[in-house]
Design a protein around this nucleic acid. Structure first.
Lengths: 368, 368
DNA sequence: AGCTAGCATTTCATCGTCGAAATGGGCCAG
DNA sequence: CTGGCCCATTTCGACGATGAAATGCTAGCT
């Protein structure tokens, strides 16, 4: 026998030590085929003595299943995406799947590569929230996908339909943004700034559809549309939200409310308001979007749109699970539109400290 | 030829279409072996026409490399861990690696399975922050690891050495906690509560070592050790931090400062303080631990220990990269202790709104 | 023309596991 | 005592890619 000491132990070696074939070792470890108790014991002893570990890659090649799914998101540095990933991983765990997370950044070619399968991924399926790829190029990417044989299934997350032939889990952005804005108007605000979208940007992303909801609410209330109250943020994070808010309040001291396109921006906005010595909500009311954990506990707690992130994650995993189930994978493409609702908290109420009843409790107990 | 239309396209089929061997297709796609331009063009055309996609699993089996590393953390629902994951993924991207994230929860058997390799993972290496596995059982788990041939390398993160033979990236918890507590004492606080650790818990985890730093600071300042001011939190999150703080302030109105074992707890603590109608820092000063993004933008901004999370992540990936480099993988095990420093912000300063100069800027521009 | 050098392509074997079907041994019924 | 059956185990052959080494071809030199 050649010296294999630098290579992993194989089933054949375990079998040799236990006096059986590699196949029997496989039968013992999989448990799918009956094995005599003595044989099983002998095999398990050999496994233990040799320190044998199953080669998941070889199994994956043989079975065509890797037990891993890919989650592709723009960037994990956002509360919303990291909480979405958390929910996806927790749900995937129920199916016994590991989750490979890919940060696409703002790079369209990265998203294209994932959608077309050009990027060689070890995974049984893909959940992706495209940022840069829209219907125009998405169709092309996914036509290539269709044409290829036996490509892993895809579930798309986000705010627009990219391809009719693919499963989508969507947010109802425009109505949600309208509801958020209506709430500000109802509390008596007149000069409502917007933090996030770039009105000059033609790309129809989250920014555009949320801005549209804002405009609808203004129109319905008979308030004027003032483009100068819209401040784009290069990235939708706290720092950029603070900077944009600072500029807006500097230029327009009359602003008495802010509609922020996500909670990260809103938390940054509140920071900027406070830094200018103004009060939330007395001087400036603030509304966010997504209802991340931090929104519950900020000071004041942040009024926001609960866009159902965890439910979206669970739904996406379940859709993927159905596609991966060989008995029911030929169903027509599905579109799920997630429910949303407004969560009113102190950032728009009369008093700066509220006592919300939605403080989450419980869960596992790891430490940081 | 049999009907293979339900199976993926192979290199052999591409080769057949292009009039060459599967091997030549491989040569074209890998680029490592020179190929005549006409041949290359023919192959690429066939790839395009047939919609061929490389089977990463098969390559992984053949080469022994999957291009994926595993990151195992207790739970992604914590700001610290999600930001650590973000940093690991960003760094891994530089090496061309995908990252599979596994949430171990509080389950020791899950950690054991990862450390011993019992859990069949498709990955070239493991970065793990153990929560439940300590030196006592960790040694056993990793002895099994050593004994096995050709097991993927491991880098351990955290607060204690689990096995001398393995690479570690450590936090200097006790000194950091002492510095945090000393800062509270220096601002004139006398009744300093602690949120997080369970003094009755014998497990020497982050809680115990941070509590030890707190005690050292008290001792040095001649302040009395009062176990009744220590409030455990079942999970180190905002909700649990708020609940524990609420109880503590109820029982001990004289408390004028809180040392919280992480920023999530601290942000929850501030929430509870505000809800009781008290002010931060005038009535109760608050210090956190980890310096997550939210700490910069809270109201007031949170004084905290910057424990160098992103650097820890980068270091861990680099250590793994060295182990995976065949030319230099036999180096002795390394231990890196991350630097820390206190970041003073408004939650301990005289005024509730400060103007910190560490507001981060820039970065990519995805949206939520 | 004959020989060698150098490059492009192919041959061959192998990575470690598992599905399907064949084999062999033990037991019960006729 | 023997035929048939069932259960445990083995045989055989992929799965799809690639490292190493051999082959074939063209070009260049004498």
């Amino acid at each position: 026998m050649t010296d294999r000491s630098d290579r992993p132990v194989t089933m054949a070696e375990v079998g040799a030590a236990a006096g059986v074939t590699d196949r029997t070792v496989s039968n013992v470890l999989s448990g799918k085929v009956p094995v005599r108790p003595e044989t099983r014991a002998a095999v398990l002893r050999a496994v233990d003595e040799l320190g044998y570990r199953l080669n998941a890659t070889a199994r994956g090649l043989r079975t065509g299943r890797t037990g891993t799914i890919t989650l592709a998101l723009p960037d994990m540095g956002y509360d919303y995406f990291s909480q979405l990933a958390h929910a996806v991983m927790t749900e995937a765990d129920h199916f016994g799947w590991a989750v490979t997370i890919v940060q696409t950044g703002a790079r369209p070619e990265r998203e294209q590569a994932l959608l077309t399968g050009t990027d060689p991924q070890i995974s049984d399926g893909l959940i992706i929230q495209p940022y840069a790829v829209g219907p125009e190029n998405g169709h092309r990417a996914l036509r290539q996908h269709d044409q290829a044989r036996h490509r892993p299934p895809i579930v798309l997350l986000g705010d627009r339909i990219i391809n009719e032939a693919i499963d989508h889990v969507l947010m109802d952005n425009t109505p949600a943004a309208r509801v958020a804005t209506e709430h500000l108007i109802a509390t008596g605000r007149a000069a409502i700034g917007v933090i996030g979208p770039d009105p000059a940007d033609a790309t129809p992303g989250s920014g555009a559809v949320r801005l549209e909801g804002y405009r609808q609410a203004l129109r319905q209330a008979g308030l004027p549309w003032r483009p100068d109250l819209v401040r784009p943020a290069a990235a939708w994070r706290r720092a950029e939200g603070a900077a944009a808010t600072d500029e807006l309040l500097q230029a327009h001291p009359e602003v008495d409310a802010l509609f922020c396109c996500n909670d990260d921006l809103a938390l940054g906005a509140m920071y900027a308001v406070h830094r200018r010595g103004l009060r939330v909500p007395e001087d400036v009311a603030v509304v966010g979007f997504d209802n991340v954990t931090a929104a519950t506990f900020s000071h004041p707690p942040l009024t926001t749109i609960d866009s159902g992130g965890p439910l979206i994650a669970r739904t996406a995993v379940k859709l993927l699970a159905e596609r991966l189930d060989p008995t029911s994978s030929a169903a027509p493409p599905r579109k799920v539109i997630a429910d949303f609702h407004l969560v009113q908290r102190g950032s728009t109420a009369g008093t700066a400290v509220s006592t919300p009843d939605d403080v989450p409790r419980g869960g596992p107990a790891p430490r940081a």
